[in-house]
Amino acid sequence: MRHFSMMMLFAALVSVVFGVTAKQTARERLFYGLKVFGEFMIIGLVLAWVLYFLPF
């Protein structure tokens, strides 16, 4: 399994639990889950590029 797909799987699973437990209606859950998923992916990619340029 590639690193990126593992990150995607991790983000998706956590987003499902966060979305279902944090919000009340199905619409709110969907949007919150997508928001958390997007945040995981964006922050993960940004951190990966920052670490890529560090010399250690």
Partner: peptide, 13 residues
């Protein structure tokens, strides 16, 4: 539905 979704998610992880 909620139980299976949440339980399934935890189990898959």
């Amino acid at each position: 539905r909620r139980g299976l979704l949440l339980g399934g998610t935890v189990a898959v992880m």
